[in-house]
Structure formats: C-alpha cells, structure tokens
C-alpha cells in the first residue's frame, strides 16, 4: 500500500522526516508519534502535495512525485483539524466532495447516502453541520474521505477531541472500514493504547525517525496492563488491598507502582494480563470477595512508555 525509501523532509530549521523507510501492507496501520514527530508531514508527502527533500515514496504502487492526482483519486484523507463549513448539510458537503473526487452526479449522490449511513449518520444528515456534535462532525469528516471508495484512507488524529465513548465508536468505525469495506487505513495518533486495539500494525516515529514498526500483537504482548478498581465492603474495608492479596495468591503479576498524582490512584490496581483467563480470574476473585467491580480496563499507554521500552530492549526496527 505504502512504501517509502529513506524519505526525508527538511525545512530550513527543522528536519521533519529523517531517512524514513517503511513498507506498509493492506490492513489498518497506526502511525504513532508525539506532536511534531512528522506524522502530518508524512501524510502530505504521501498525498503528493509536498515534495520530499530526498528519498522516494510510493502509494498504491504509484510514485508520489509524478502521480499525485492519480494517487489522490484513489486515496481518502481526513484532516486533523475542523474543515467543515457550518452552513451546509452533511449530504450537500459530501456530495460535492464526491464530485471533486471525480464521481458523476448520480453516483456521487448514491455513494453519499450509503457512506453517511455506514458512518452512522441518519436523519441528521440533512441538517446544517453547524449544529452537529464533535462526534458527528468527525463522522462527516470520515464520510467525505470514504465517499469515493478509495483503496486507502489516511486519517489524521481521528479521535481528537472525542470523549471516551466517542473515541471507542470512532475506533470501531475505523476497524470496520477495513474489515467490512476492505479499505486499508493509515491512522495517526499520539496515543499508542487506542491504536493497539484497532490496528494490525503499528509504526512509531519520533523526531522524523522510525522508532519501531511491528505488528500489534508484539506490542500487546509487552504492554497489556489491566487497571482494576473495586469498591470497599463491610467485610473488606480495604477492598483494593484484599483484591491485591487474593490476586497475588492466584499468581497474577501486580505492578507495584500506580500512577501518582491522579485522583483515586491509590484505589487502582495495575496488573499484567497474560490472556483471556486473567479477565475471568479478576472477575471471579472480585465476586468471591463480595466487592463491587468499578472498572476493569486496558491501560492506555502513552507513547513515552514505548520510548522507555525501546531504550531498555533496543527492539530493532523492521
């Protein structure tokens, strides 16, 4: 889908990309990096809108230098920032954008209706976008990237500004773009945790350099941490302590440190999840102790943790 060969982009004062070589296949690929790591620069180059300083890049087998318009006809792009005029309806905007991608008028209307339904916009699609919630706007942005049935979509920070539920819905939708629609996805984020559940493959870049590129299962193996919070009960005034003891007895690795400084941090247990059975074990143990399970969730890792891991292990980049 995407191949780059020692791709570099230098601005007068900054090096945005530094000899980046990647080979991204079909599926959902996450591009992770802190702000300013070069993610957006990368997308611009891949769309053929910004020439690379050196190196080469191919998208769908086409050279970005010479085949920009052909690539953009078969690729969808969802910008990170707001890009929707408030005074038109989602339908009007997406129909217009479909025509800008080269779809004949009738096909543009038909594909718009289909695509908006697929991203979960129903009756509201006839109302002006100005009245939409952030989640609905993100769906419109996704729809305009998908309306011309591209082979690949580039999604720049699609979960930005969404609440946890909206985030999960958007991630589910992104997964669906590949599993149901068969459209490959390159999605950027600065949160590794949310990508590891959605992506088949994750590429981590920092300061324009490739830090790590591997399939998600590699990440998951090293990074799956469960956060568990329980209530206290009369029998166990310190519910957290009781659960910690019980789980330790059952052989679960419990991380000593919890995040300090966060409210309620003392009540959260972080434990290593070795597989499905850990979830069941936690559930059964909590029930056995007669405690209330407030939450059990996969910890979202910040990109910094990968850096730490890389420093320690020196994982070779592919």
């Amino acid at each position: 889908m995407i191949a780059t060969e020692s791709l570099s982009k230098r601005f007068p004062r900054v090096t945005a990309l530094d000899r980046l070589s990647l080979d991204i296949g079909p599926g959902v690929t996450g591009l992770v990096g802190a702000n300013g790591a070069g993610k957006s620069t990368m997308i611009k180059i891949l769309l053929g809108l910004s020439p690379a300083t050196e190196g080469s890049a191919q998208v769908l087998g086409l050279d970005v230098r010479t085949h920009g318009p052909e690539i953009r006809e078969r690729v969808g792009y969802m910008p990170e920032h707001d890009c929707l005029p408030p005074d038109v309806s989602a339908t009007e905007l997406v129909v217009h954008m479909a025509r800008m991608s080269g779809l004949p008028p009738a096909a543009a209307r038909e594909r718009t209706a289909d695509t908006l339904r697929h991203v979960g916009l129903y009756e509201e699609r006839y109302r002006p976008i100005g009245g939409y919630s952030t989640g609905m706007k993100q769906r419109v942005k996704l729809a305009q990237a998908l309306v011309h049935d591209p082979k690949l979509v580039l999604l720049d920070e699609p979960t930005n500004g969404l609440d946890p539920v909206g985030r999960d819905e958007m991630l589910g939708l992104i997964r669906k773009v590949w599993t149901d629609f068969g459209i490959s996805v390159l999605v950027t984020s600065h949160l590794l945790g949310e990508l590891e559940r959605t992506c088949d493959h994750v590429v981590v870049i920092d300061g324009g350099k490739l830090l790590r590129s591997s399939s998600t299962s590699d990440f998951t193996r090293t990074t799956t941490t469960l956060a568990v919070e329980v209530t206290d009960s009369d029998a166990h005034p310190d519910g957290t302590g009781a659960l910690r003891a019980a789980l330790a007895t059952a052989g679960v690795t419990i991380h000593a440190g919890v995040e300090d400084g966060l409210p309620g941090a003392g009540h959260i247990l972080l434990l290593e999840a070795s597989g499905e059975e850990t979830y069941d074990l936690v559930r059964d143990t909590v029930a056995g102790l007669g405690l209330g399970l407030v939450r059990m969730e996969q910890r979202r890792h910040h990109i910094a943790e990968v850096f730490k891991a890389t420093d320690q292990e020196e994982v070779p980049a592919r």
Binding site: H81, C83, M100
Partner: peptide, 12 residues
C-alpha cells in the same frame, strides 16, 4: 472553515 485541504487532497 479550512475546507481547502479537502479540495487539495483530491485530484484537483
């Protein structure tokens, strides 16, 4: 409304 990028990410 920064709609311009939507145009320039298309063939035009």
């Amino acid at each position: 409304f920064r709609t311009v990028p939507l145009y320039f990410s298309r063939p035009i």
